[in-house]
């Protein structure tokens, strides 16, 4: 575990906490894309299914449980919570996210570390995470009233993968040249998608 990765995980955790705070404190999910939240839940379920088979560390297992339960809680709130669900911008959140799931799955079948169920799920989760923010970015561009917490949520979410890129650079020079091209390319695409958001976020 290096500082970049730890910072990345903490930034990711913080982004989820900011979103939970926004939804809990304001009892509203206006400006939040439910589709992006559903995609993230799929990403975590597909990537962390080794939770019960491979024990890497207490930290690793605890964080996996936190990410799975928090993303499921957010989706549940946006679908079932009587007050919150009424504030969901259904008409605005129109991105056809099924296309993203299908594309990530096809890519994972073609490009993976090994053609095994677990590796295909892992690659699928990496590709899907790279594009999962798209419905949210589209919603932000449509919505006039981007409240601070939602903006901060997206900012921290974008920043976390940038820290991971630093982590991969660090590991490349310290742990030898493993082939991590799936993570590399997806991480660059993922962070790149935030570029214009960061541009406007800092200009605002």
């Amino acid at each position: 575990m290096n500082a970049f990765r730890f910072l990345g995980d903490m930034t990711h955790l913080f982004s989820v906490l900011v979103l939970l705070l926004k939804i809990y404190a304001t009892k509203s999910c206006s400006g939040v894309s439910r589709k992006t939240q559903e995609l993230y839940m799929v990403v975590f379920l597909a990537r962390y299914m080794d939770l019960f088979t491979d024990y890497i560390s207490l930290y690793n297992s605890v964080m996996k449980v936190v990410f799975i339960t928090s993303s499921a809680a957010i989706v549940w709130c946006m679908r079932r919570h009587p007050q919150v669900r009424r504030t969901y911008d259904k008409e605005q959140d129109t991105f056809r996210h099924v296309v993203l799931v299908a594309a990530a799955f096809v890519l994972a079948l073609i490009f993976n570390e090994r053609f095994t169920f677990r590796e295909i799920c892992w690659a699928f989760s990496i590709y899907l995470e790279a594009v999962a923010i798209l419905p949210q970015l589209v919603l932000l561009q449509r919505g006039r009233n981007v409240d601070n917490l939602t903006g901060q949520y997206v900012f921290f979410l974008g920043a976390y993968r940038a820290f991971y890129i630093l982590n991969w650079i660090y590991r490349y020079f310290t742990e030898g040249h493993h082939s991590r091209w799936i993570s590399w390319l997806s991480g660059l695409v993922q962070t790149g998608l935030y570029a214009d958001f960061f541009y406007y976020y800092f200009l605002r």
Partner: peptide, 10 residues
């Protein structure tokens, strides 16, 4: 079984 490299990350 050996964890494929890079899968020790979140």
């Amino acid at each position: 079984d050996d964890v494929v490299d890079g899968h020790d990350e979140l």
